[in-house]
C-alpha cells in the first residue's frame, strides 16, 4: 500500500487533469490548461519514483530518457499540417503501453474483476494501437486516403471481434493460465483495429482518431483498476468520457453521424449493424 500523502498527491494531480480539460475547452485558458496538465503529470511521476520501491531503476530512467529524446524533438519540429497524424501516433503508442502494462499484470491479477479488466485492456489497447497506426498512415498519405473495404471486410471484422471476445472469455475462465493466450488476444486485437479503421475515408479520419483516443483512455482507466492506482483510473476515465463526447461534437460539426462514418464504406451487402 502506498502512503497516504502520495495518494493525496495523486488525487491532486487527478483534480488538475479535470481543470486542464476545463481550461482546454476555452480559447483564453487553453494553453494554461495544457501546462497545468503537464505539471500535474510531472508531479505524479516524481511521487511514483519516491513511493514505489522500484527495481530496474536505471533501465527505467534510461527508457524515459529515450522516450523524451524521440518525443520532444518530433513534437517540436513537426509541421503544423502534420500535427493531427502525430497526435494519432502518440495516441496509438499510449494504447500500446496500456495493453502491455495490463498484459504484464494479467498473470498476477488476484481476483476475477482485475483479471477481466486486464483482459479488456489488452484487447482495447491493441485495437487503439493498430487503429491509430492506420490513421497515421492515411493522414501522412503513406497509404490511400480513400475508404478501403477488404473483400468480406464486415464478415472478417465480425469474426475477429468474436475471436477477441472468445479469447477474452477463455482467459477469464482459466485465470492466471494463459500468457500465450494473452499474446494471442493482443494479436487479434491488432487485426480488429486495422479492420476498424480501413473503411474510414480521409476526411473523417480525425473523428476516428478522437474515438480511438477515447478507447485508449478507457484502456488506461482499466489498467489503473488492475494495478489499483486511482490516478490512472481517473485520468483514463476522464479521457474516455470526454473523448466520446468530443467525437460526437466533431461529427456534428461536420454534419455527419459517427455511425455513418464508421460503417459508411460497408454499405451495400453489409452485415454490420
Amino acid at each position: 500500500m502506498i502512503p497516504v500523502w502520495a495518494q493525496v498527491t495523486y488525487l491532486g494531480a487527478a483534480a488538475c487533469f479535470v481543470l486542464a480539460l476545463k481550461g482546454l475547452s476555452s480559447p483564453k485558458t487553453a494553453r494554461a490548461g495544457n501546462l497545468l496538465g503537464a505539471g500535474a503529470a510531472l508531479v505524479a511521476m516524481v511521487v511514483t519514483f519516491i513511493v514505489y520501491e522500484l527495481d530496474n531503476l536505471a533501465l527505467i530512467v534510461a527508457a524515459i530518457a529515450v522516450g523524451c529524446l524521440i518525443g520532444v524533438p518530433v513534437a517540436r519540429r513537426v509541421a503544423m499540417t502534420a500535427m493531427p497524424q502525430l497526435v494519432a501516433l502518440f495516441n496509438g503508442v499510449g494504447g500500446g503501453a496500456a495493453g502491455l502494462v495490463a498484459y504484464l499484470e494479467m498473470s498476477s491479477a488476484p481476483t476475477v474483476f482485475p483479471l477481466a479488466a486486464a483482459v479488456a485492456t489488452v484487447a482495447v489497447g491493441s485495437i487503439a494501437f493498430s487503429g491509430s497506426v492506420v490513421t497515421f498512415l492515411k493522414l501522412q498519405e503513406l497509404m490511400t486516403t480513400r475508404p478501403v473495404t477488404p473483400p468480406a471486410g464486415p464478415a472478417l471484422f465480425a469474426i475477429s471481434l468474436a475471436v477477441t471476445v472468445a479469447l477474452g472469455a477463455a482467459l477469464y475462465a482459466d485465470d492466471g493460465a494463459g500468457v500465450w493466450l494473452g499474446a494471442l488476444l493482443g494479436a487479434v486485437g491488432l487485426i480488429v483495429g486495422i479492420l476498424f479503421v480501413l473503411p474510414v475515408g480521409g476526411a473523417d479520419v480525425p473523428i476516428v482518431i478522437s474515438l480511438l483516443n477515447a478507447f485508449t483512455g478507457l484502456a488506461v482507466a482499466a489498467s489503473g483498476y488492475v494495478i489499483g492506482n486511482a490516478l490512472l483510473l481517473i485520468g483514463g476515465t476522464l479521457v474516455g468520457a470526454s473523448g466520446t463526447i468530443l467525437t460526437r461534437l466533431m461529427a456534428q460539426a461536420m454534419g455527419r453521424s459517427v455511425v455513418s462514418i464508421l460503417f459508411g464504406a460497408f454499405k451495400g451487402g453489409s452485415t454490420a449493424g
Binding site: 495544457n34 496538465g37 483512455g217 485520468g235
Partner: peptide
C-alpha cells in the same frame, strides 16, 4: 490535450 493526459499510463 486529452491524448496527452492518458499518457499518465
Amino acid at each position: 490535450g486529452a491524448n496527452a493526459i492518458h499518457g499518465i499510463i
